[in-house]
């Protein structure tokens, strides 16, 4: 760092307060199953999973500049890995996390190949990967093609215990991934990632290890999406490959991130809450709901490319969670 008349700040009183509030809120959320009924717990579980997906897509697109429409590959693989491990007799809740870890390991060779592609090629390439992985999973005799199977290992828990465990697992996963990303982005990787997003060649020319940074984000995103898939199968039990490897998951992630605010830390979480609300309100309208989602994402991309949080941030200079620096 060069000496400068300007001083560099990271924390503001507001961000200190908001980080404290977030920590407090997360601790309060832990107590939800003790206070509220089944419906609130299950809905919050879904919201946590959406939150994970939004965070993970944003980590790729918002920070790594890697637009992927194939993250459902990891989502489906995470669910599949959990089912395979549970079928092999592995305790089912640890299987969710271990499965996601195995998917991240499998994503390593994938990263070596896919990260050589750029822009649109990468996006479509990831979709192809997702379709390919889908077909491979269909070949497994345990899955029986599109009929799929169910995570019946969870039947050994009674309804209430399983609901609470799954909720805690989802909450812990979202919090861990969000904090993990928070600290990663505050470190060397955050700086590198933003340099890459703004201009890859320029970043490389000043010594940023472009490939390594991208690979870290790719693996993080693969792990997070796989964990979301594993948690999803724990909440729905049924695994039908077509629904897990469906491109609609990518559409949901894109919606959440674009509307919430791409490249901001808070935006995707806001997007996940919004998406959850929209789904609750309009999900029953079928095709029109999908058209509405698409149109909204389109309008946001055209009229408000930085998303809701981006706009709020720009207007008020708000930084609730300090992942960047500012000058005074």
């Amino acid at each position: 760092m060069n000496p400068s008349p300007l001083s560099i700040h990271r924390w503001t009183p507001l961000s200190v307060a908001s980080v404290a509030a977030v920590v407090g809120a997360q601790l309060l959320l832990v107590a939800v199953p003790l206070v509220f009924g089944a419906n609130v717990v299950e809905r919050l579980t879904t919201l946590c999973i959406y939150g994970i997906l939004a965070l993970m897509w944003n980590s790729l697109a918002g920070y790594g500049g890697l637009i992927s429409v194939g993250q459902q590959a990891f989502f489906g693989l995470g669910a599949y890995a959990a089912i395979r491990l549970a079928d092999a007799g592995f305790p089912v809740y640890p299987a969710l996390a271990l499965g996601a870890l195995l998917v991240a390991v499998a994503a390593l060779p994938m990263a070596q190949a896919m990260l050589r592609l750029k822009g649109g090629e990468f996006a479509i390439g990831m979709w192809v990967v997702a379709e390919f992985v889908h077909l491979l999973v269909n070949l497994d005799p345990l899955i029986q093609g599109e009929t799929g199977t169910s995570l019946i290992a969870l039947n050994s828990f009674d309804a209430e215990a399983r609901r609470s465990y799954t909720y805690w697992a989802a909450l812990a996963s979202m919090a861990a991934l969000a904090w993990g990303m928070f600290f990663l982005l505050r470190g060397r990787l955050g700086t590198a990632a933003q340099a890459i997003r703004d201009n890859e060649e320029a970043a490389a020319s000043v010594g940023v290890r472009v490939f390594a940074a991208k690979r870290t984000l790719f693996l993080l995103s693969a792990f997070g999406c796989a964990l979301a898939g594993a948690l999803w199968v724990a909440t729905t039990i049924s695994f039908q490959p077509k629904t897990y490897f469906s491109v609609q998951w990518s559409a949901y992630m894109i919606f959440m991130v674009l509307v919430g605010g791409i490249g901001t830390f808070e935006g995707p979480i806001l997007g996940a809450v919004l998406f959850f609300a929209v789904e609750t309100a309009f999900g029953a309208t079928g095709v029109w709901y999908m058209i509405g989602l698409g149109a909204t994402a389109l309008l946001f991309a055209m009229l408000l490319p930085q998303g809701l949080w981006g706009a709020i941030e720009k207007r008020f200079g708000l930084r609730l969670l300090p992942v960047g620096y500012f000058l005074k």
């Binding site: 919004l274 009229l303 706009a311």
Partner: peptide
């Protein structure tokens, strides 16, 4: 383009929608 206020209002309304089914 839409005003910031409208967006904030929309966000608030969305929050309400979240609360309603609850």
């Amino acid at each position: 383009g839409p005003s910031r206020r409208e967006f904030i209002r929309a966000a608030g309304a969305a929050g309400l929608a979240l609360a309603l089914p609850g």
